[in-house]
Design a protein around this nucleic acid. Sequence first.
RNA 1: GGCGCCGUGGCCAAGUGGUAAGGCAAGGGUCUGCAAAAUCCUCACCGCCGGUUCGAGUCCGGCCGGCGCCUCCA
Length: 455
Amino acid sequence: MSVRLLDTLTGTLQELPPAPYEVKLYVCGITPYSSSHIGHAVPIIVFDALVRYLRYRGYAVRHVTNFTDIDDKLIAAAEAQNTTVKALADKFSDQYLGSLKRLNARPADVYPRATEEISRIVEITQGLIERGYAYESEGDVYYRVRKKDDYGKLSHRKIDDLKSGARIDPTERKEDPLDFALWKGAKPGEPSWDSPFGPGRPGWHIECSAMSYGHLGEQIDIHGGGADLIFPHHENEIAQTEGFTGKAPFAKVWMHNALLQMDSDKMSKSTGNVVDLDAVIDRWGADAIRLFILSSHYRSPLTYSEEALQAAGRGAERMRAAAFATPSGTIPGPDVSGLREQFEGHMDDDLGTAEAIAVLFDLVRLINRERDAGHDTRAMQELLRELAGVLGFGLEAAHGGSRDADPFIDLLVQVRTEMRAAKQWAFSDQIRDGLKELGVELKDSAEGTIWIVSP
RNA sequence: GGCGCCGUGGCCAAGUGGUAAGGCAAGGGUCUGCAAAAUCCUCACCGCCGGUUCGAGUCCGGCCGGCGCCUCCA
């Protein structure tokens, strides 16, 4: 069986061509105008798991993720903070990449920025004008939505259903309220670039058409992003790209992750109802977040809660402990190659990470059981580490805050070990209890004492 | 108003026709100086009502209850 992914546009499972094959993947990135929140971790982790799995399956993957480093929000934020759009965008782009790294996600192969793709944006805009899909209007350029007779196919909307909800902005000079801007004429004080349509800047959706076209070509395999981008962003991208190239489909598979919910309220930058991503990583660790997110299907909405993260943190620690427990025996353990096949079967089926993780925990239990029985668990542990790695688990001990205290903790543990050897139970328990109150948990075993920091 | 999604054990969450994965928590046993960890055992009438079927959490209809998108958002 090969890898199958559900396509938002057709609603059907699409099979990837058999490997070896280069998968062209475009994942919509962020507009870097503020800090990342926990919701951003979802696409980061989901698409990281996808890329890792495809590579594990023998595919080459060319992964492109953009930064939309020019738009209204960025201009407003720069003005409010008395800085430049570029400085602000660079700052939050770097921050995003830092968080991504901390989440143990592999970076994309290319991170194009809208402001570095202006010539291609102009090229596509011009092409759309020539083909009748766009028109100039007093320095702006708009996409003529009604010209594209399949407009709405991705979000499954009829153009006339959209009309009642369309935004009417009196400053815009459109033929139809549904038309959207490809190019916005410059306003005083705003960053702008020269173009055949006059000085200005790109509209919101055109940059992604330009960057996927420029870095991946006219047609791509997978286009991904959050479900909130289906309309209007991706709908408009299709209209732009297919209108420009005359080729369809723009993407063979449209892959959309469901959005993370915040208890009852929607998490959204616009409402301020957000949880800072780096703070969550600090507190729970990358693997806990990853386990939390990949424990459900990427198309099912998840609700963020401290309880859920805590539960995931404990599960991640259990997985890590089994992966690195010292093998205890030499009697051969059972053959576990069937578990690898199960894992692949679930992942092949539209990235069934939840079931794949269940297989991992089956392996965990098997390892612990066989180890207790004095069997050789090395092969199973290797398999666990490999498959956990395919999902992007770093299997590092959760470790909040700085590690400055480590040598002192080690010293205390060492002292306690000697006390235990001398059967000084009261003193050794005092050390253990005291450390526990400070958030350091000790675990004694035949191989010695290990300690972990509990979140 | 238009389009769409969801409702599975204390919590989270898989599962699209054949008598319910997994994680966390809880209770009991084993192990351990004690503890933790580990392991074993226990714990679900799948929102409600009809229908289709030999058989439905899984398909169809209705109802109730949550929610998303339609506007910046991953």
